[in-house]
Structure formats: C-alpha cells, structure tokens
Simulated assay, not measured.
Amino acid sequence: MNTIYQSNQGKNILLNSYEHYLSLLQTETKRTYVPTRYGLTHVMETGSSELKPLVILQGGNCINPMTLAWFRPFV
C-alpha cells in the first residue's frame, strides 16, 4: 500500500496535530468520505445547515482543521 508518510512516528505527529486543530474549532464536525475516480476523498462539514454553504478547497500545505479554523467566524 502506498503512503505519504515516511515513518509511523511522522504519521502519528500529523494525526495528533490534526485532532488538536479540530478541537480548536469548538464546533461539531462531520467527517465524510466521498468516492471519486482517484479514490476516497475526505470531506469535513461544520456549521448550520440552514445557512448558505461555504466550500473550502484544502491545499496541500496544511491540515484541514487548521484551514477550517481560519473560517471559524463564518460558522
């Protein structure tokens, strides 16, 4: 199986950082996996379903919860 991680230690550091930033959002977050032609894509949803959606396309330079934290005022 191919992996982006060079070691289990590096993987664990990244996953712990991911959960840390997710906890900083202080809001309920739904995790979903959407099938695409490239495989499963991780999607995170947060905020009120009664508001207009805001779609944020995550770049590769930081983790999803960190990016969502930038948009916290809009939730």
Rank of each mutant, 00 (worst) to 15 (best):
Y18K: 02
A69L: 15
L22H: 00
K52P: 02
T3M: 07
Y38R: 15
N16C: 00
G10W: 03
T29D: 01
T41H: 15
E28M: 07
N8R: 10
T67K: 03
C62P: 00
P53E: 11
N8Y: 07
E45A: 10
E45W: 05
F71L: 01
L40S: 00
S48T: 03
H42F: 06
T29C: 14
M44F: 13
A69W: 01
Q9D: 13
L24I: 00
L54H: 04
R72M: 07
E50I: 01
T32V: 13
P65G: 05
Y18P: 00
N16Q: 11
Y33K: 07
C62L: 07
T27N: 10
T46H: 03
H42E: 15
K11F: 08
Y21N: 04
G60S: 07
M66I: 02
C62M: 10
N12Q: 11
I56H: 06
S49I: 07
G60A: 04
L68T: 01
Q26E: 13
V75N: 08
T32W: 02
Q26G: 05
L14E: 11
M1Y: 13
Y33N: 05
Y21C: 01
H42R: 15
S23G: 13
Y38A: 14
L25A: 03
V34P: 02
V75L: 14
F74Y: 13
G59A: 14
V75A: 12
T3A: 08
S23P: 14
Y33L: 07
V75C: 14
I4K: 09
K11Q: 09
